[in-house]
Amino acid sequence: MSALLSAKGLKIAFGGVKAADGIDLDIAEREFVAIIGPNGAGKTTFINMTTGYLRPQAGSITFDGTDITGLPPRQIVRRGIARSFQIPQLFTEHTVIENVALKVAAHRGFWHAFRPLLDRETTAATMAILDQFGLRSVAEARATELNEGTRKLTDIAMAMALEPRLLLMDEPTSGVASAEKFGIMDTLVAALRARGVTAVFVEHDMEVVERYADRVAVWSQGKILASGPPAVVLNDPAVLREVIGVEVKHAAGATPGSGDAHA
């Protein structure tokens, strides 16, 4: 079976640092793939290259059989790849519903000068998304008034409003209080599964990774060091030594699937 997203031989370097040095990565339809690795390894660079924000210096990216390497972000979005950000980038002058509605409009029909943004159709579609992400209660709040977890969810809801087939998320739980993170991930994953969306997420939190990822890819020094089910990869001694380090070894030692959070 052919992959939904297929990266081949991706290379990019900043100054002397090789963020990607021959990356091959296939993502299958409806798969949930976590990318882990040390800080500055190039994980976010992968998202940036796939969404057209950066152009790889070598290699190609194929989405659903067509080559999208080096296309501008706008065209890639239209083909069905959306992303969220490590630091949520909401429109600060708008409310939550307007933020999401802008994305709904962007997807369904944006070039209207004399029809309200929040017409009946767009409002209904927007509210459906807000409901799915549990955001109805903050619909009228301004983007600047939200807590970090809600901002993250709003950011992802906005990406989902574009009805993508593939969603790339940059650290969906970073900056979120640890008490909130599973709640957010549960909401998120349920919404993605309900819509049949394939997802790639960059993540530092190994508890989140082992609980929600179908597969883990380990990114280290511009290469994919290992790739496979969390239970296998997170117990691979090479991975533990090279990438994860002492702090999270502890969490990785937990029985896969037990789900209990270690402090």
Binding site: H94, L102, A105, F110, W111, R115, L117
Partner: peptide
């Protein structure tokens, strides 16, 4: 409208 709302964006 969507266009007008995109301006503050």
């Amino acid at each position: 409208s969507p266009l007008g709302q995109a301006l503050p964006a």
